[in-house]
């Protein structure tokens, strides 16, 4: 498999505190990679680096061979998008929110796609509802629909189902797996829930204090962990 991201010696420092410190990380095109670890491990910062929302203080990130920096062309930037833990929806209806990404890209006729995605997310009855009036689960489904409709090459998910009920969790997980399977979208899922990682991911990385301590196939992550901390985390023995 070709690699879509390549990180070498990447450091991100906030006021003398190193929050991301990765020697090497390769993300393969079309995979679902879960990044697990306790809060404050630097998972969200890593996602922001992968979404070009901020830049490494040292080291090199390559996306599809392009060096990631402030000069990264818009075409590349627009291939990656994130669904955050708390959905930030725009004023206006559900439909207006979902179509937003297409509008940004100057696409006039995305009606069919929008409708399809909205239906897939079980939002067809709420199409014209004000987005700000939705429940947490509905809002997160809108956020996912809004991200999916632009058909990103990479979809980053930052704790997308934290605090959601089982129905919404399973619907979101199902859709994410589906677009990975059908559209070959690369998924990077940040979660502190090892069970979600196990359900979803091809590979899992454990992040602690900004460093990736283990990265292996999901099966191996649980059955043959190389690092004792991985075993502790996987067994729910790590206290954080």
């Amino acid at each position: 498999m070709a690699k879509i991201y390549d990180l070498q010696n990447v450091k991100r420092v906030y006021e003398s505190r190193t929050v991301v410190d990765i020697d090497t990380l390769e993300i393969e095109d079309g995979e679902i990679l879960a990044i697990v670890g306790p809060s404050g491990a630097g998972k969200s910062t890593l996602l922001r680096l992968l979404n070009f929302l901020e830049y490494a203080d040292s080291g090199l990130i390559r996306y599809k061979g392009q060096e990631v920096n402030a000069q990264l062309p818009l075409d590349f930037r627009r291939q990656v998008t994130t669904v955050f833990q708390r959905p930030a929806l725009l004023q206006g209806s559900v439909e207006e929110n979902v179509v937003y990404g297409l509008r940004l890209r100057g696409k006039k006729n995305g009606k069919g796609e929008v409708l399809e995605v909205i239906t897939r997310m079980g939002l067809e009855k709420l199409r014209r509802a004000r987005a700000r009036t939705l429940s947490g689960g509905e809002a997160q489904r809108v956020a996912l629909a809004r991200a999916v409709v632009v058909r990103p090459a990479v979809l980053l998910l930052d704790e997308p189902t934290a605090n959601l009920d089982p129905y919404n969790i399973s619907l979101i997980e199902e859709v994410v797996r589906e677009i990975n399977r059908v559209q070959k979208t690369t998924i990077v899922l940040v979660t502190h829930n090892v069970f979600q990682a196990k359900r979803m991911a091809h590979r899992i990385a454990l992040m602690l204090s900004g460093k990736i301590v283990e990265l292996s196939r999901t099966q191996d992550f649980f059955d043959h962990p190389r690092d004792p901390r991985t075993r502790a985390f996987a067994n729910g023995e790590m206290i954080y």
């Binding site: 990656v80 955050f84 930030a88 937003y100 990404g101 956020a143 809004r146 991200a147």
Partner: peptide, 11 residues
């Protein structure tokens, strides 16, 4: 958060 979200969507 909205600014980051919108930027992430390609704005």
């Amino acid at each position: 958060d909205l600014r980051i979200q919108v930027r992430s969507l390609g704005a």
